[in-house]
Amino acid sequence: MDNWILIFGMLAITFATRYSLFAFPDLRFPQAVRQALHYVPTAVLTAIVVPAMLLPDGRNWALSWDNAYLLAGLATIAIAVVTRHLLATIGGGLLIFFGLRWALGQLPI
């Protein structure tokens, strides 16, 4: 039962953040705010990705040659720069990542 309370609470909180500004259609942002919003995707997503590459477990730095997250992450960035193609980036990045994990003996097989 508790779990359903948890789920409905999470629903309310998540929806509130997503609907927060859609709820006020008459609100018009000043120029400075509109300008700032251009940087939202870049700043948020980079702030998620870079730590995930350098600290894959969320705690410890992994600046080493057997960190597949870092190596494959850099390779994925290179693919994105060259191809600018989303599917090639995601598919190619995953292939390289699992290839590396396999070569480094990091897969549980």
Binding site: A43, I77, I90, F97, Q106
Partner: peptide
């Protein structure tokens, strides 16, 4: 233990890199 979470890194890289078209965007990143 397979490290499937790398899929998120690949997705977000694919989203962000094409947005880095000018200096302010690169600096923000």
């Amino acid at each position: 233990a397979w490290g499937l979470d790398f899929a998120m890194i690949a997705t977000f890289v694919g989203i962000v890199v094409p947005m880095l078209r000018n200096r302010p965007q690169i600096a923000a990143a």
